[in-house]
Design a protein around this nucleic acid. Structure first.
Length: 184
DNA sequence: ATCTCGATTGGCT
DNA sequence: GCCAATCGAGATG
């Protein structure tokens, strides 16, 4: 069991996104652990990707994308928050969106935060998993490579099934690029 | 100050 | 499968 470090994140999002599959997203919440295994991710290239929030340059909202690799970028969309992990170097705003988890620890807390009972309703979407793990705007710009932080990603050497690839979900630009990665 | 729109979700048909 | 909810960021005046 080891925390993912700068070297892991400091690469192209097209490499980091598939390798995040099978890793464990861990939220330390008031002395308790809420965690889940990552099963779906999407890569967003920075400057040259029309679907990226950084495509039109740096703004107040997306400024976390310009931090060094391993920082969190949290944004709100409709009534949800989504979690991105920054990849590549400073001022290279590539990132990976965490789209789905399989719940591991803290399932009762997830049920309370989600107001849902079924396991399949807890973390099966980018806005659902942030609600289940209580990941809000306060995590925007936080360094996920800090082992003392309240949000980290660990590698427990879980064997990953065949990685499947498809176009990204829910976007209106660059709809056909195969930048979504998932396992079943 | 006002308008538009979205990397979503949940409920209904 | 379709669609309304809902809210903050960004653009515009």
């Amino acid at each position: 069991m080891s925390i993912l470090n700068l070297d892991f994140y400091n690469r192209s999002p097209l490499l980091v996104a598939p390798e995040l599959l099978g890793k464990v997203l861990i939220r330390k919440y008031q002395q308790q652990i809420i965690s889940g295994r990552i099963v779906e991710t999407e890569a967003y290239l920075g400057n040259d990707d029309p679907a990226s929030h950084a495509f039109k340059g740096k703004t107040k909202r997306n400024s976390s994308l310009y931090l060094s690799a391993g920082h969190a970028y949290i944004y709100s969309i409709h009534r949800s928050y989504c979690l991105d992990i920054v990849t590549e170097g400073i001022n290279t705003p590539g990132s990976v969106l965490i789209r789905a988890l399989v719940p591991l620890q803290g399932i009762e807390l997830m049920r309370r935060f989600r107001q849902r009972e079924k396991i399949s309703d807890l973390t099966s979407g980018p806005g659902k998993l942030t609600q289940a793990l209580q990941i809000t705007k306060v995590f925007d710009g936080q360094d996920l490579t800090n082992a003392d932080g309240e949000l980290v990603i660990n590698d427990d050497n879980y064997p990953v099934n065949k990685i499947l690839v498809s176009p990204r979900i829910g976007i209106s630009q660059a709809k056909t690029e195969p930048y979504r990665f998932y396992v079943v």
